[in-house]
Design a binder for these strands. Sequence first.
DNA 1: TCTGTAAATGAAAAACTTTTTCGATTAGAG
DNA 2: CTCTAATCGAAAAAGTTTTTCATTTACAGA
Lengths: 128, 128
Amino acid sequence: MRLEAVVGKIRGRGYKATPQRLAVLRALAEEQHQSLEEIRGRCPEVGLVTVYRTLDVLSEIGVVRRLDLGDGPRYELAEEHHHHLICESCGDISEFEECPLDLRRLGLVDFEVSSHSLEIYGRCAGCR
Amino acid sequence: MRLEAVVGKIRGRGYKATPQRLAVLRALAEEQHQSLEEIRGRCPEVGLVTVYRTLDVLSEIGVVRRLDLGDGPRYELAEEHHHHLICESCGDISEFEECPLDLRRLGLVDFEVSSHSLEIYGRCAGCR
DNA sequence: TCTGTAAATGAAAAACTTTTTCGATTAGAG
DNA sequence: CTCTAATCGAAAAAGTTTTTCATTTACAGA
């Protein structure tokens, strides 16, 4: 999703497209699954509180996804659906798009699924 | 896993089976995926710091699993492999054992999988 | 383009959560 | 029964996130 489109989404929800929000968005676009400090490092001109608030707003409108991969919260642009592969040895996080999930197999008759998350833990090639 | 077996595991790793640890274990046995405060409420005689330390020890020896389901850390006895169904409306968490996952489909040639977690979010029957 | 106003910002403080420190206590091996 | 390393609890420290509030600003409407 281009920045322009996100700006439209922000305004459409009655929020303002401030320079700070754009700076955070640009920071998020540089790399997926960043911690708060990593994001901050990419837009040091934005105050800490504003980064927190911006991530809240962007999550609320569905532009950002908050992750919990075991080591504190991480954030990423919610572009395409994907999952994470986490190396427990070096901490490296990578992504994969294929979703090896067959929800029909579960037979969730009374539950209306809106999303799911899948994380795979193990040792990456480099660490083996 | 019976309490007795866990005690053996604790001692086998060089840790001591203290009354506080047993109290935390009993609290964990009462309900899955509890928050720290819920656990504390079930064993108020154990100091806060000791609960944290006990959860660390029990996680280290594989008796406890720490979860991140979006609302702060939760802990549960790592008995059988299972996943979570989270209602985004009322916050209710339930479990399911069937694992609708086919890891072979992913073709993770260089990654040695040790575990995985899967969470399904949506609206439960009662909230629809 | 200008204006008015609700929304947003930043800094400081508050509120929470988790970890560290350290002196006192205790499980459990011998 | 004794001894000692492990553990405990309370207080303090450290770290994280939220709230408060006075000031600034985006942007809709004139």
